[in-house]
Protein backbone atom coordinates (compact mmCIF):
# COMPACT_ATOMS: atom_id res chain seq x y z
CA UNK A 1 0.00 0.00 0.00
CA UNK A 2 2.78 2.41 0.92
CA UNK A 3 4.67 1.45 -2.24
CA UNK A 4 2.29 3.46 -4.39
CA UNK A 5 1.09 6.59 -2.56
CA UNK A 6 -0.97 7.84 -5.51
CA UNK A 7 -2.89 4.58 -5.65
CA UNK A 8 -3.35 4.62 -1.88
CA UNK A 9 -4.73 8.15 -1.97
CA UNK A 10 -7.03 7.18 -4.83
CA UNK A 11 -8.30 4.16 -2.87
CA UNK A 12 -8.74 6.25 0.27
CA UNK A 13 -10.69 8.84 -1.72
CA UNK A 14 -12.94 6.23 -3.28
CA UNK A 15 -13.47 4.52 0.07
CA UNK A 16 -14.35 7.84 1.75
CA UNK A 17 -16.87 8.61 -0.98
CA UNK A 18 -18.40 5.14 -0.65
CA UNK A 19 -18.58 5.49 3.14
CA UNK A 20 -20.23 8.92 2.92
CA UNK A 21 -22.82 7.64 0.44
CA UNK A 22 -23.50 4.60 2.57
CA UNK A 23 -24.01 6.72 5.70
CA UNK A 24 -26.46 8.90 3.80
CA UNK A 25 -28.50 5.82 2.80
CA UNK A 26 -30.36 5.85 6.12
CA UNK A 27 -33.43 3.83 5.00
CA UNK A 28 -31.16 0.88 4.18
CA UNK A 29 -29.13 0.67 7.39
CA UNK A 30 -31.55 2.01 10.01
CA UNK A 31 -33.78 -1.12 10.27
CA UNK A 32 -30.71 -3.32 10.75
CA UNK A 33 -28.86 -1.48 13.51
CA UNK A 34 -30.83 -2.76 16.52
CA UNK A 35 -30.51 -6.40 15.50
CA UNK A 36 -26.76 -5.97 15.20
CA UNK A 37 -26.61 -4.12 18.53
CA UNK A 38 -28.16 -7.12 20.20
CA UNK A 39 -26.03 -9.65 18.36
CA UNK A 40 -22.70 -7.84 18.65
CA UNK A 41 -23.22 -6.15 21.99
CA UNK A 42 -25.67 -7.88 24.31
CA UNK A 43 -24.41 -11.34 23.40
CA UNK A 44 -20.85 -10.20 24.26
CA UNK A 45 -21.66 -9.19 27.85
CA UNK A 46 -20.91 -12.62 29.42
CA UNK A 47 -17.35 -12.82 28.05
CA UNK A 48 -16.68 -9.20 29.06
CA UNK A 49 -17.92 -9.88 32.60
CA UNK A 50 -15.85 -13.05 32.83
CA UNK A 51 -12.70 -11.11 31.92
CA UNK A 52 -13.56 -8.24 34.26
CA UNK A 53 -14.06 -10.51 37.27
CA UNK A 54 -10.57 -11.94 37.00
CA UNK A 55 -9.01 -8.61 36.10
CA UNK A 56 -10.42 -7.11 39.31
CA UNK A 57 -9.14 -10.01 41.42
CA UNK A 58 -5.65 -9.91 39.95
CA UNK A 59 -5.40 -6.12 40.19
CA UNK A 60 -6.38 -6.12 43.86
CA UNK A 61 -3.88 -8.86 44.72
CA UNK A 62 -1.14 -7.35 42.60
CA UNK A 63 -1.51 -3.86 44.03
CA UNK A 64 -1.55 -5.23 47.55
CA UNK A 65 1.69 -7.08 46.79
CA UNK A 66 3.27 -3.89 45.43
CA UNK A 67 1.99 -1.53 48.16
CA UNK A 68 2.53 -3.64 51.28
CA UNK A 69 5.10 -1.96 53.49
CA UNK A 70 5.44 1.08 51.26
CA UNK A 71 2.06 2.63 50.57
CA UNK A 72 -1.14 2.58 52.67
CA UNK A 73 -3.26 -0.39 51.62
CA UNK A 74 -6.34 1.70 50.83
CA UNK A 75 -4.49 2.76 47.67
CA UNK A 76 -5.56 -0.65 46.35
CA UNK A 77 -8.98 0.92 45.72
CA UNK A 78 -7.39 3.78 43.79
CA UNK A 79 -5.32 1.50 41.62
CA UNK A 80 -8.14 -0.94 40.92
CA UNK A 81 -10.56 1.87 40.06
CA UNK A 82 -8.23 3.90 37.89
CA UNK A 83 -6.79 0.93 36.04
CA UNK A 84 -10.08 -0.82 35.39
CA UNK A 85 -11.89 2.33 34.28
CA UNK A 86 -9.17 3.93 32.21
CA UNK A 87 -7.19 1.08 30.75
CA UNK A 88 -7.87 -2.57 31.42
CA UNK A 89 -11.65 -2.36 31.23
CA UNK A 90 -11.73 -0.83 27.74
CA UNK A 91 -8.63 -2.54 26.33
CA UNK A 92 -9.19 -6.09 27.59
CA UNK A 93 -12.87 -5.92 26.69
CA UNK A 94 -11.92 -4.51 23.31
CA UNK A 95 -9.42 -7.31 22.71
CA UNK A 96 -11.94 -9.97 23.68
CA UNK A 97 -14.56 -8.42 21.42
CA UNK A 98 -12.03 -8.05 18.59
CA UNK A 99 -11.87 -11.83 18.70
CA UNK A 100 -15.56 -12.41 19.08
CA UNK A 101 -17.11 -9.56 17.08
CA UNK A 102 -14.34 -9.01 14.51
CA UNK A 103 -14.12 -12.70 13.68
CA UNK A 104 -17.90 -13.02 13.55
CA UNK A 105 -18.28 -10.13 11.10
CA UNK A 106 -15.36 -11.19 8.88
CA UNK A 107 -16.53 -14.81 8.71
CA UNK A 108 -20.12 -13.84 7.98
CA UNK A 109 -19.34 -11.29 5.28
CA UNK A 110 -16.53 -13.46 3.89
CA UNK A 111 -18.93 -16.36 3.46
CA UNK A 112 -21.44 -14.02 1.85
CA UNK A 113 -18.72 -12.83 -0.53
CA UNK A 114 -17.56 -16.28 -1.66
CA UNK A 115 -21.12 -17.56 -2.06
CA UNK A 116 -22.01 -14.52 -4.22
CA UNK A 117 -24.56 -13.23 -1.70
CA UNK A 118 -22.83 -9.83 -1.75
CA UNK A 119 -23.11 -9.76 -5.55
CA UNK A 120 -26.76 -10.76 -5.24
CA UNK A 121 -27.33 -7.89 -2.85
CA UNK A 122 -25.84 -5.46 -5.35
CA UNK A 123 -27.92 -6.81 -8.21
CA UNK A 124 -30.98 -6.09 -6.05
CA UNK A 125 -29.83 -2.44 -6.15
CA UNK A 126 -28.55 -2.33 -2.56
CA UNK A 127 -25.40 -0.49 -1.56
CA UNK A 128 -23.30 -3.22 0.09
CA UNK A 129 -21.66 -0.74 2.45
CA UNK A 130 -24.99 0.69 3.56
CA UNK A 131 -26.53 -2.74 4.06
CA UNK A 132 -23.59 -4.71 5.45
CA UNK A 133 -20.97 -2.34 6.88
CA UNK A 134 -22.69 0.73 8.30
CA UNK A 135 -25.15 -1.07 10.62
CA UNK A 136 -22.37 -3.26 12.03
CA UNK A 137 -19.98 -0.36 12.59
CA UNK A 138 -22.67 1.79 14.21
CA UNK A 139 -23.86 -1.09 16.39
CA UNK A 140 -20.32 -1.85 17.56
CA UNK A 141 -19.57 1.84 18.18
CA UNK A 142 -22.62 2.13 20.41
CA UNK A 143 -22.40 -1.26 22.12
CA UNK A 144 -18.68 -1.52 22.92
CA UNK A 145 -18.98 1.30 25.52
CA UNK A 146 -22.09 -0.35 26.95
CA UNK A 147 -20.31 -3.68 27.33
CA UNK A 148 -17.21 -1.91 28.65
CA UNK A 149 -19.25 -0.05 31.27
CA UNK A 150 -20.48 -3.43 32.54
CA UNK A 151 -16.89 -4.64 32.60
CA UNK A 152 -15.78 -1.55 34.52
CA UNK A 153 -18.46 -2.04 37.14
CA UNK A 154 -17.80 -5.75 37.53
CA UNK A 155 -14.03 -5.24 37.59
CA UNK A 156 -14.22 -2.72 40.44
CA UNK A 157 -16.76 -4.92 42.22
CA UNK A 158 -14.55 -7.99 42.06
CA UNK A 159 -11.55 -5.92 43.19
CA UNK A 160 -13.58 -4.73 46.19
CA UNK A 161 -14.77 -8.25 47.06
CA UNK A 162 -11.20 -9.54 46.77
CA UNK A 163 -9.91 -6.70 48.97
CA UNK A 164 -12.35 -7.22 51.81
CA UNK A 165 -12.03 -11.01 51.75
CA UNK A 166 -8.36 -11.62 51.03
CA UNK A 167 -6.51 -8.39 51.91
CA UNK A 168 -8.00 -7.49 55.27
CA UNK A 169 -9.15 -4.21 53.79
CA UNK A 170 -12.48 -2.79 54.92
CA UNK A 171 -15.15 -1.45 52.60
CA UNK A 172 -14.68 2.18 53.81
CA UNK A 173 -10.94 1.88 53.21
CA UNK A 174 -11.44 0.49 49.71
CA UNK A 175 -13.95 3.23 48.90
CA UNK A 176 -11.62 5.88 50.32
CA UNK A 177 -8.94 4.72 47.89
CA UNK A 178 -11.42 4.51 45.05
CA UNK A 179 -12.55 8.12 45.60
CA UNK A 180 -9.04 9.43 46.23
CA UNK A 181 -8.00 10.17 42.66
CA UNK A 182 -11.35 9.59 40.98
CA UNK A 183 -12.42 12.04 38.29
CA UNK A 184 -15.45 11.79 36.06
CA UNK A 185 -13.00 11.90 33.15
CA UNK A 186 -11.79 8.42 34.15
CA UNK A 187 -15.09 6.97 33.03
CA UNK A 188 -15.71 8.92 29.86
CA UNK A 189 -12.09 8.51 28.82
CA UNK A 190 -12.56 4.74 28.97
CA UNK A 191 -15.91 4.86 27.20
CA UNK A 192 -14.70 7.14 24.39
CA UNK A 193 -11.80 4.77 23.85
CA UNK A 194 -14.06 1.75 23.74
CA UNK A 195 -16.40 3.44 21.22
CA UNK A 196 -13.44 3.97 18.92
CA UNK A 197 -12.35 0.35 19.49
CA UNK A 198 -15.82 -0.81 18.50
CA UNK A 199 -15.77 1.21 15.29
CA UNK A 200 -12.28 -0.05 14.40
CA UNK A 201 -13.01 -3.72 15.14
CA UNK A 202 -16.26 -3.71 13.15
CA UNK A 203 -14.67 -1.81 10.28
CA UNK A 204 -11.71 -4.20 10.07
CA UNK A 205 -14.03 -7.20 10.23
CA UNK A 206 -16.33 -5.79 7.55
CA UNK A 207 -13.64 -4.72 5.11
CA UNK A 208 -11.66 -7.92 5.50
CA UNK A 209 -14.86 -9.92 5.05
CA UNK A 210 -15.79 -8.07 1.88
CA UNK A 211 -12.26 -8.55 0.49
CA UNK A 212 -12.48 -12.32 0.89
CA UNK A 213 -11.70 -14.56 -2.05
CA UNK A 214 -10.88 -18.22 -2.47
CA UNK A 215 -13.55 -20.21 -0.66
CA UNK A 216 -13.31 -21.63 2.85
CA UNK A 217 -9.56 -21.01 3.10
CA UNK A 218 -10.11 -17.42 2.11
CA UNK A 219 -12.77 -17.00 4.79
CA UNK A 220 -10.33 -18.41 7.35
CA UNK A 221 -7.60 -16.01 6.21
CA UNK A 222 -9.93 -13.01 6.34
CA UNK A 223 -11.14 -13.94 9.80
CA UNK A 224 -7.62 -14.24 11.16
CA UNK A 225 -6.58 -10.99 9.52
CA UNK A 226 -9.62 -9.18 10.89
CA UNK A 227 -8.83 -10.25 14.46
CA UNK A 228 -5.14 -9.32 14.16
CA UNK A 229 -5.90 -5.96 12.57
CA UNK A 230 -8.63 -5.29 15.13
CA UNK A 231 -6.24 -5.93 18.02
CA UNK A 232 -3.55 -3.78 16.41
CA UNK A 233 -6.04 -0.98 15.84
CA UNK A 234 -7.06 -1.14 19.52
CA UNK A 235 -3.45 -0.74 20.68
CA UNK A 236 -2.78 2.13 18.28
CA UNK A 237 -6.01 3.91 19.25
CA UNK A 238 -5.22 3.32 22.93
CA UNK A 239 -1.94 5.17 22.52
CA UNK A 240 -3.62 7.86 20.41
CA UNK A 241 -6.28 8.65 23.02
CA UNK A 242 -3.66 8.68 25.78
CA UNK A 243 -1.71 11.28 23.82
CA UNK A 244 -4.75 13.36 22.93
CA UNK A 245 -6.88 13.23 26.08
CA UNK A 246 -4.44 12.86 29.01
Amino acid sequence: MLANPALSIQRLGRWSTDAARALADVPTWRPLVFAHMRRLGVDSVPIAIFIAVFTGIVLALLSSYIFTGAVPLYFVGALVGKTVMMELGPVLTGMALAGRVGANIAAELGTMRVTEQVDALETLAYDKYAYLVVPRVLAATVMFPVVTSFAMGVGVLSGWITSINLLELSTPEFLKGLRLFYQFKDIWFGLVKSASFGAAVALMGSLEGLRTSGGAQGVGRSTTRAVVLGCQAILVLDAFWALVLL
Binding site: E116, E122, A125
Partner: peptide, 23 residues
Amino acid sequence: DRDDLAELRAHIGYVFQFAALFD
Protein backbone atom coordinates in the same frame (compact mmCIF):
# COMPACT_ATOMS: atom_id res chain seq x y z
CA ASP B 1 -22.60 6.45 -11.35
CA ARG B 2 -23.78 4.49 -8.32
CA ASP B 3 -27.37 5.83 -8.39
CA ASP B 4 -27.84 5.29 -12.12
CA LEU B 5 -26.38 1.80 -11.84
CA ALA B 6 -28.84 0.99 -9.05
CA GLU B 7 -31.65 2.33 -11.24
CA LEU B 8 -30.50 0.15 -14.14
CA ARG B 9 -30.21 -2.92 -11.90
CA ALA B 10 -33.85 -2.45 -10.95
CA HIS B 11 -34.64 -3.63 -14.48
CA ILE B 12 -32.26 -6.59 -14.52
CA GLY B 13 -32.83 -9.85 -12.69
CA TYR B 14 -29.83 -12.05 -11.99
CA VAL B 15 -29.99 -15.78 -11.31
CA PHE B 16 -26.71 -16.92 -9.77
CA GLN B 17 -25.05 -20.26 -10.43
CA PHE B 18 -25.56 -21.47 -6.86
CA ALA B 19 -28.65 -19.30 -6.34
CA ALA B 20 -26.84 -16.98 -3.85
CA LEU B 21 -29.83 -16.92 -1.53
CA PHE B 22 -29.37 -15.09 1.77
CA ASP B 23 -29.10 -18.02 4.13
